[in-house]
Design a protein around this nucleic acid. Structure first.
Lengths: 215, 215
DNA sequence: ATGCGTATCCCCCGATTGCGGGATTGTTAT
DNA sequence: ATAACAATCCCGCAATCGGGGGATACGCAT
């Protein structure tokens, strides 16, 4: 069986050494590169493509997140595991958005790290439990806020609002809906009234942010 | 040490029995309830609150997802693990949005199930690796589309645009930014020009939909 | 039948916006 | 140093928007 080829980016010498020892101690893995910064990450990976990348999140010159973006856009299927000392909420999500598939704290036990490498290699997404929970909570926020307020818009008003959200003017909406400009205005007035706003823009922003319409 | 109190909702008798055996075989856990449907889930949980809920996703009468919504809105801190036979993409996300914190396939080995119950109890979010990967990929889609177009807005223009997106009028923005109404208009003109739109609303919609600003 | 909500149309008027210019002061880049 | 750009301000004018009315007509409930 082939070994899993790993590359590490981390500005800390001691961490790189520790990881180097860890990986080479297990015949199933081999460390094919280890770098203190990610400035040349694309070139490095191009020259000798690994199976998995370990990326420190805080690095000088090019930050881990920037590096992930670059790597992900060049080698979209190459899995990257982020390593970090703090499980900062924002950094987690920035990394995930940038293209990382795993997120581990540096105090992860060595055995777990090897397990994680194997896991991404097999299509998983290793995370510490606390980070996994943060990710889950991120989904819940989306759906828990919007239903707190209910503005009972009539069907016709929703229709007008949809067009407003698409950026149409009253005149254009009138044309689209086959009604008069004045009617569109009347609907809009009631919409603004019900949404407690006083301009088209405010209505549109509120509609989008609170997902008042089905999209 | 107290045992972790578990309740199960699953319409399959065999699964309920298997879980019952599994949980009672380990002194660290105790099964305090086991129901074939979730119609009375709120009453049940209110009468005898558990630490963790296991919820089958496909059930007659009330679906697992509906049950999760109800439970989550009544007992928002009660962790729920979904159990399912298929890792259907949509169901996963519906469940997560509804308030579940864990998501396991029914072929999960018994030991892993107990581990997962412990994990949610301790604030984690157990998932099978394949589901974890799906969740991760969900984040990546968001950021991969928007960078297809780049409108090189100046810093000042971005600032004005931010205020527009917050629903402010030119006059209000002028006040906020300490510049003249006329200057705000000039910036806005250039913004509309660069975004290829011709109204405040269109600019706002485009900005939000394409995530042109950092939010 | 009387009221309530919805949908439709109309008018007036002031405020705001969009578009066409033009102008000055910096900074940056070639 | 000359051009290019960003940021600031100004004017005029037409179009659009927002708020205030009022009006008709339909359906639906009590």
């Amino acid at each position: 069986m082939n070994t899993i080829r790993v590359v590490v980016f981390d500005d800390s010498n001691s961490i790189r050494e520790a990881i180097s020892l860890l990986i080479d101690s297990n015949p199933a893995f081999s460390l094919i590169g280890s770098y203190a910064d990610a400035t040349c990450c694309i070139e490095v990976l191009e020259a000798d493509p690994p199976d998995v990348v370990l990326m420190d999140i805080d690095m000088p010159e090019v930050t881990g997140i920037e590096a992930v973006q670059k790597i992900h856009s060049h080698f979209s299927s190459l899995p990257i595991i982020m390593l970090t000392v703090f499980d900062n909420q924002d950094k987690v999500f920035e990394s995930l958005c940038a293209g990382a598939v795993g997120y581990l704290l540096k105090n992860t036990p060595p055995a777990r790290l090897l397990e994680a490498i194997l896991e991404v290699y097999e299509g998983g997404a290793p995370m510490t439990p606390s980070i996994a929970r943060k990710v889950m909570q991120h989904f819940q926020r989306n759906e828990s806020l919007p239903k707190k307020e209910e503005y009972h818009l009539s069907p016709r008003e929703k229709e007008v609002l949809t067009h407003l959200v698409n950026g149409l003017s009253y005149k254009m909406i009138a044309g689209q809906m086959g009604i008069t400009y004045e009617t569109v205005r009347t609907h809009s007035k009631k919409i603004y009234d019900k949404l407690h706003v006083s301009s088209m823009t405010e209505a549109v922003v509120k509609t989008i942010n609170q997902k008042l319409l089905g999209f």
